[in-house]
């Protein structure tokens, strides 16, 4: 009952929170003292990046590791990893696009060879490669194992992206919400909008993941039915 209710409410709650984020971000919050209205993009970009790097890619990497561990190996883990990776690819592309839109007026260029930007783009390439690897193997078990290993290798890139602003001199700013001591740097309605945005995009990820997972199950079922039908057809034709 609770499960069904939460599944039904996930979509509407996500949409309401996204609408709230846009309303707060575009109309309620004041313009930034330095960046003016451009700062409004920062209610969206960090949340999308958070989902792309940590939530969705993290889900894919953990599901892949669980698939490789024999005790938890199941087709469910493989499907979750694949679906999360696909959603993560969309979010990482959005991260790069929203970052570019912010970068053009701020830095004067759409793209800079900055450590944070470059490592994020490399993660995006890893994700595209994962999807290519997925389509290159027909044997489901072999495909699942290879993709799981590849996802774990690609996961090495996530801490590199996270710490890139500390390890190298970058154009991209470092931590801007909390200081190193854990004190807040953003306050009031700006902070609330940021938090609501993070929550809304996280829910959006789970909503998309659930929808994509159901689609994947349907596709697999349809594949099995089509295979059974083809075999039955062959038998009727007298081919054994």
């Amino acid at each position: 009952m609770i499960k069904t209710l939460s599944q039904r409410l996930l979509g509407p709650v996500t949409l309401v929170l996204l609408a709230l984020t846009f309303w707060l971000g575009l109309w309620v919050t004041p313009p930034d003292k330095v960046q003016g209205n451009l700062a409004r993009l920062l209610y969206v970009h960090p949340a999308i990046a958070w989902v792309a790097l940590y939530v969705s890619f993290g889900t894919a990497a953990i599901a892949s590791a669980l698939y490789l561990w024999k005790r938890t190996r199941s087709v469910v883990m493989d499907r979750v990893a694949y679906c999360a990776m696909e959603v993560s690819t969309v979010f990482i592309i959005l991260t790069l696009i929203t970052g570019s839109i912010w970068g053009r007026p701020t830095w004067g260029v759409w793209w800079a060879w900055d450590a944070r930007l470059t490592s994020t783009a490399i993660l995006g390439l890893f994700e595209l490669a994962y999807l290519a690897l997925r389509r290159a193997n027909d044997d489901p078990d072999l495909r699942a194992r290879r993709c799981a290993v590849f996802a774990i290798i690609a996961a090495i890139n996530v801490p590199i992206i996270h710490f890139s602003v500390d390890w190298w001199n970058t154009l991209h700013q470092g931590a801007t919400v909390f200081t190193e001591n854990g004190n807040l740097l953003v306050h009031g309605i700006m902070l609330w909008t940021l938090f609501i945005s993070l929550f809304a995009f996280t829910l959006l990820f789970f909503w998309l993941l659930r929808a994509r997972y159901r689609l994947e199950v349907l596709r697999a079922t349809r594949y099995d039915v089509a295979l059974d039908e083809a075999l039955a057809q062959r038998r009727r034709e007298g081919v054994h």
Partner: peptide, 19 residues
């Protein structure tokens, strides 16, 4: 990772270049 599947020669650069 790339061996044995479809188009391993084209899959290999795709997989390895980001790494």
């Amino acid at each position: 990772l790339s061996g044995g599947g479809q188009g391993p020669a084209t899959l290999l650069p795709m997989l390895s270049l980001p790494a």
